[in-house]
């Protein structure tokens, strides 16, 4: 089992290197710093001197991979690739194009993101599973039928409309909570209620329907028939056997998402004015701040790979067959 995990970790490192190379190619080879400078400075009225100055200010004026003019190991370290890409492995992200320290910004904006994403994730999953359980327990009845219809309708509505509708109904019409904004400490509560509610409702449709199919797949298995044949009541069969076994795919499926909660939610954070990583990313995209976008790509992939790793580990914990692979 340990050999398996070690193998997965090594694999994860290779993937990370691949991601690093892709982002490097995307941001320095396909989109050269010259192009970025031209975009930033305005396309029409740009002089070569201005571009050179812009690049020098941000350390983009070095050779890409190999610096022939430098000495010794600086031939490799005094390059764009080393300074901008390799340094990321040390979580040294440098400065954004407007001169702020990215690592510092990230460590500050992480908390509002988590304050929104964790409740949405936990409450949302609880609600989805409860709803799915209800539909699966009363399967093949009108309750189930209309439950599925409700799910399909809810998942056919764009998330943007949940946000706009929620803001209009709860904040503007009923005046219960502020439309947007954020405060630190316990004051954050009143700003977070609405985004959390909207996030939870927006996810119920697809989530509940997905969990329902997992439950139904489990219900159709042979051991369930055996349990019924033993004379167990439907409730016992359902909650002791089906629920427990269905929780395995549900929980291992959820594990991959957990690290990504750090990244926050792009749309809802920027709609509700929460200063998290999601809105940070959007602002960077809209301002075409490549240093920030690059850092966020890196962090996002690290978290995703971490999620994959956790999934692998959780599989070995719950499913003995994987352990002896």
């Amino acid at each position: 089992m340990y050999a398996y995990i070690v193998r997965r970790v090594v694999y994860a490192v290779f993937i990370l290197i691949g991601v690093n190379l892709i982002t490097f190619a995307l941001f320095f080879k396909v989109n050269t710093p010259d192009d970025i400078a031209r975009l930033q400075l305005g396309v029409k009225y740009v002089t070569p001197e201005a571009i050179a100055q812009w690049k020098a200010d941000r350390g983009y004026d070095k050779p890409l991979l190999y610096n022939a003019r430098a000495e010794g190991r600086h031939k490799f370290t005094d390059t764009i690739y080393f300074e901008k890409s390799v340094e990321m492995f040390r979580f040294n992200f440098g400065r954004s194009d407007d001169g702020r320290d990215i690592a510092n910004e990230i460590s500050m904006r992480m908390w509002p993101s988590l304050a929104l994403a964790v409740p949405v994730f936990l409450v949302g999953m609880l609600l989805q599973i409860t709803f799915a359980l209800m539909m699966a327990f009363f399967r093949a009845t009108y309750l189930d039928f209309w439950g599925v219809v409700l799910c399909v309708v809810m998942m056919s509505i764009s998330g943007l409309f949940y946000i706009i509708g929620g803001q209009y109904l709860i904040s503007k019409l009923w005046n219960l909570v502020p439309i947007s904004g954020y405060a630190t400490g316990f004051d954050a509560f009143k700003f977070l209620v609405l985004p959390v509610v909207v996030g939870v409702i927006g996810g119920v449709g697809s989530g509940a329907r997905w969990y329902r199919t997992i439950f139904l797949e489990e219900v159709g298995k042979d051991y369930v028939r055996t349990a019924r044949a033993k004379g167990l009541s439907e409730i016992v069969v359902f909650f002791r056997h089906v629920l427990r076994n269905a929780m395995i795919p549900i929980l291992t499926g959820a594990v991959v998402v957990i690290p990504l909660l750090f990244m926050g939610s792009l749309v809802s954070e920027s709609f509700f004015g929460i200063p998290g990583l999601g809105s940070y990313t959007i602002e960077a995209i809209q301002a075409q701040d490549f240093a920030v976008v690059r850092s966020m790509v890196f962090i996002g992939s690290v978290l995703y790979i971490l999620g994959l790793l956790l999934t692998d580990i959780s599989y070995t914990l719950v499913d003995p067959r994987v352990r002896f692979e």
Binding site: F14, I15, L16, G18, V19, I22, T23, L26, F27, V30, N31, D35, I36, R38, L39, M263, L266, T281, I285, Q288, F290, V293, M296, V297, G300, S301, Y304, I305, L308
Partner: peptide, 24 residues
Amino acid sequence: YFYTTLNSIPGVLLIAAGVLVLQV
């Protein structure tokens, strides 16, 4: 390896990078 690597780059950011490439 190829698809896991592509998959681990956050989708929105990859799209953003791609669209910026086109803009340039």
